[in-house]
Amino acid sequence: MNDTIVKSITRLVIPFVQVYGIFIILNGHVSPGGGFSGGALLGTSLILYTLVFGAIKAKHKFSHKASEIAESGGILIFVTVGLIAIFVGMPFLTNLAAGFPAGSAGAILSAGMIPIIMIGIGIKVASTMITLFHKLIEEVIQ
């Protein structure tokens, strides 16, 4: 797609979409949203970039190595949070009882492990969407 209008509008829109996605992930425990919706938004912004600027340029932005780390990282965050509870002597994935700070309800920094888990899910969903999309279109291009 070699259209100037599309390219410049995409450049303009993508940062807003990404900021909105991050906002939704971080506010998941106090307002509608969460890791899935926010991660999907982040992934969509990268898919939009790929569609407009082509797969090769997108690969530079989000390389194979980065996607590999992001894929494993999402689960690793999740499992680490769970294992902290085991080290304290509580069951897997215990939240407040395992010593995560509760904070004041309604604030962004509250609810113990929930924001951390949401960030993990967000990373995971976003990286999954973009990796799968890249894999499918690479196949079609060849």
């Binding site: 425990h29 307002s31 949203g33 969460g34 769970g82 407040l96 609810a111 113990g112 899910i121």
Partner: peptide, 22 residues
């Protein structure tokens, strides 16, 4: 009170039933 999250769906997804989400 138990999870600190005001969004009950998020509390269920990421705390009460967090193992499903894993």
């Amino acid at each position: 009170e138990e999870t600190g999250a005001t969004n009950v769906v998020a509390a269920v997804v990421a705390d009460y039933r967090a193992f499903d989400t894993l």
